[in-house]
Design a protein around this nucleic acid. Structure first.
Lengths: 353, 353
DNA sequence: GTCAGCAGTCCATACTACCGAGTGCTGACC
DNA sequence: GGTCAGCACTCGGTAGTATGGACTGCTGAC
């Protein structure tokens, strides 16, 4: 079989291609290393499927794979460890997406059967589920509210001179902003200003709120309504547009043995902005996996990220991410991310129907 | 001097008291150990204030302190390390609360000067501030909404058969619950049901919502209102009543050198329920510090917790917590927790006025 | 009660030896 | 030419041993 592969090996762009045997060996090394975290020697590969050659031949093939940048030796006389490039080939050409194991599938099914409550709560719990499934840190970025439109706006008095603007968005999110009120603003003024505000912002998107409102006639009411609108507008710039739920970050402690690595990874995980843009960036580049230095975040050089979008009614709304060491179990992670993404999409679409 | 101490040593409860020199030595050992994380030998104590004796005398005092359970030796011929009891004495009798250093004070001041936005956001940021100040993991538990009363309730249609109940509480919190609507429920039905609901729940506390509403006459409206109320009531049991913001958990990675300890501590930090009840428990026992095994959480045996409440208009609303290794800098942590708690109370009271 | 002096303990560190997993190379074989 | 058994070699990890030093506890003098 490998014999006539040679024929079109020259025809095909050989740059990123490996012949079947090299691929099988790389596959075996990656698989083994993911499991054991120990450099893999030629002896451990000899029984792998698709590799029907002696350890001596494997050694020479491994040496070639090292020359081509797929493997490295930590030191002479040690086994081989995959490079980022090796993992990349593995993810692209080998291993497939894999499927969740039976217990995993059951866990996911049960989770979504008994899932209920608000979207935020569900996303948070989902991050826990993903962490459990994959033993990675799980990142779940909620939908952006940028394109959602205002369904309802309301002005509520909290204290003599404090009010709260509450808007409900079409995607079910609720935003609020406290506003200072002038001294004499009673319930009636609030109600009228609220109505005025509601009329002005209804069906506008949060990103494109009007700058002023139609006057209601009463200067006090108008003033209050304007204040409320200003409070609302400040929300948009103010708050990070997306919230990210991080679950299972403790698992990063088990993933590395250097406590310093753990610390730097955790530090990144605490920076929501970095996490969100990391995931977005990977997704925008059309990838579902970013390995080592492929994503630009330097402190995560020894990590890999697996992403999957989730959507409601076909519209991509959020992102699922899994963060683990580069030697993470990619097939499992991909399968889990994809399965949970699909289920989540289904669940959310159903709820919004 | 010690001679006639013997006399009333039997009379007075000598149990927890140490004479001035022993206290000074203990103080020096704890202070030194907090700084260096290395066992402290008699030589390092010799220059400490209040200890004007030779190292030989210190050694015999240290041996006594060890017999009394304030210090331990990791092994013979090593220096001494404080026990939990030693830290406890230090916290209770020595070191005082301390004050924040100048840069710390400035950091706190600046933070609260430019603090703005909603309470949740502010609490989250506060957890980051505290972590920065103390190099500990910071826990901020928001106010419980149990005693807050409903200021406003509203029913908004999101999709043909989906509605959202939004209630605003007297403390400024907003709660929401999605509800399924019957097929024919149009805007008018929603408005009427919403009004009916609002009338029924206004000024009720979330914990004591009515079980049924006054009928509005129309069976469809009544049904919708009842569904909405049910959705609202489910919120109370459903959601954890308090949310805890955890900041700076990455700092736990630097605090311990055993990666396994880091993992177990982080695992605890991910369990909001445990964290909340831990803080509550410590506070309920009237403590501001819980050291080692004093709090019941076994995986945190090598940690200490410093807590401080914060309040609005005199009413205790939330809790600030700092989690660090037992050899954390107690005076600094206490000062930071107290200062931030006070500032936060002030800020929140001011906003609610 | 204090303390200088001393003998003793025991952890780190460094050094050495050794084992074994693993490599690259070579020469024979198909 | 590709394959592979055999071989010499490399080098990290473990174990054993020596050394230094930071401690201690004790003792006897003041």
């Amino acid at each position: 079989m490998a014999r006539h592969d040679d024929a079109h090996k020259l025809a095909a762009p050989a740059a990123d291609e490996l012949d079947a045997r090299k691929a099988a060996i790389l596959n075996a090394v990656v698989t083994e290393y993911i499991g054991s975290a120990q450099p893999v020697g030629s002896q451990h590969v000899v029984d792998a499927p698709g590799v029907n050659v002696s350890s001596a031949t494997i050694r020479s093939e491994m040496a070639a794979l090292e020359r081509e940048g797929y493997l490295v030796q930590p030191h002479t006389s040690a086994g081989r460890v995959p490079t980022d490039r090796g993992y990349r080939f593995f993810v692209d050409h080998l291993g497939g997406t894999g499927t969740l194991d039976a217990t995993g599938r059951q866990q996911v099914r049960r989770f979504f059967e008994q899932a209920h409550g608000e979207i935020e709560q569900m996303l948070e719990r989902t991050s826990g589920l993903l962490a459990d499934l994959t033993d990675c840190a799980a990142l779940v970025v909620g939908p952006s509210h940028e394109s959602a439109t205002v369904r309802s706006a309301q002005l509520v008095g909290l204290a003599p001179r404090v009010g709260l603007v509450v808007v409900v968005l079409s995607d079910g999110a609720v935003q609020k902003a406290t506003v200072d009120l002038p001294d004499g603003a009673g319930d009636e003024v609030l109600a009228r200003a609220g109505a005025c505000l509601a009329a002005g912002v209804r069906d506008a998107s949060l990103a494109h709120l009007p700058t002023e409102l139609a006057p209601a006639g009463d200067p006090v009411v108008d003033a209050v309504a304007a204040t409320a609108l200003a409070g609302l507008r400040s929300l948009v710039d103010d708050e990070a547009p997306e919230h990210v739920f991080v679950g299972g970050s403790s698992r990063m402690a088990a993933a590395f043995d250097a406590v310093e690595t753990v610390r730097s990874v955790l530090t990144i995980l605490e920076q929501q902005l970095v996490v969100v843009s990391l995931l977005r960036d990977v997704l925008d580049r059309g990838l579902s996996v970013a390995i080592g230095t492929e994503h630009g975040v330097e402190p995560l050089a020894s990590c890999a990220v697996v992403v999957a979008p989730f959507s409601v009614d076909g519209e991509e709304l959020g992102t699922i991410g899994l963060l683990g060491p580069t030697r993470m179990n990619y097939p499992q992670a991909l399968a889990a991310a994809q399965a949970v993404g699909e289920r989540l999409s289904g669940r959310l679409s159903e709820a919004g129907r």
